[in-house]
Design a protein around this nucleic acid. Structure first.
Lengths: 125, 125
DNA sequence: AGTTTTGGTTACTAATAATAACCATGGTAA
DNA sequence: TTACCATGGTTATTATTAGTAACCAAAACT
């Protein structure tokens, strides 16, 4: 009997595809950045806003809500005046940041290679 | 002299922020999925299209071009008739997939936790 | 002449993100 | 007492990105 050639995987559309799930969760423009900002400890809305250069109030609110829903971030309101709202990584949030770090440190290390590749590609076109 | 409180990082907008770079590159809907598909070996356009359920021809072309530009994927045209075009992970591509795997296997492991968190959040609202 | 297979592109529409303006609370200052 | 500030948002509008469907070009096969 001939040795079967290993089948190539098929990536389905459904919600049980872990890759699609993780992409849908944190594959947007701001999620990772916010989680990395919260690695330094709990932080308030406006502080996050000023540390993440370029994020709008709307996208910060929206992304924080999503991260809260997924269980990566907790939101605590302190009923002072004016109200103080603190965001903090949950255990799950602190946990997912670890593989994210791998990714980012890789990207950091290879940043020059990527720049070179882009330049070479753009040359040709 | 008082011990200085550790400063919280600021995440700048510029192209030298490695986090923003990696997010901009692979933080879209299809990039990771295509790279994971190519882990199984070089593959052709239409094969990729049928393995990645739900991707359109347009987005496949576009995302492959981007990945090529970043240096993660190579594109080889074999001038047969009809032409055969093969896509393959570059060394850099094979390299970045490793931390991506960490991420996905994490997500896979915690899939149920996330589902629970979503359900709990949606309860409250 | 018409059909198939390859790997695309183009024109159009839907979904998502960004921008700018606005709001409510209560405190301080003139 | 009217004005202004800071908090943490929301709303309406516009720009950007993704998705859909139709089309194209080369050659072989019928």
């Amino acid at each position: 009997m001939a040795k079967a050639k290993p089948e190539k995987r098929v990536f389905y559309n459904d919600e049980d595809c872990p890759i699609r799930n993780v992409v849908a969760q944190i594959g947007d423009k701001w999620s990772m950045l916010i989680m990395f900002a919260l690695v330094d400890g709990a932080d308030r809305f406006n502080s996050l806003k000023s540390r993440i250069i370029g994020i709008s109030q709307r996208m910060l609110t929206q992304t924080l809500r999503d991260l809260e829903r997924e269980g990566y971030v907790s939101r605590t309101v302190y009923p002072e005046v004016p109200a103080r709202v603190e965001y903090e990584l949950t255990e799950m949030g602190r946990d997912i940041v670890k593989p994210l770090y791998q990714l980012v440190s890789w990207a950091d290390k290879h940043h020059d290679d990527i720049k070179r590749s882009r330049a070479a590609y753009d040359e040709k076109v």
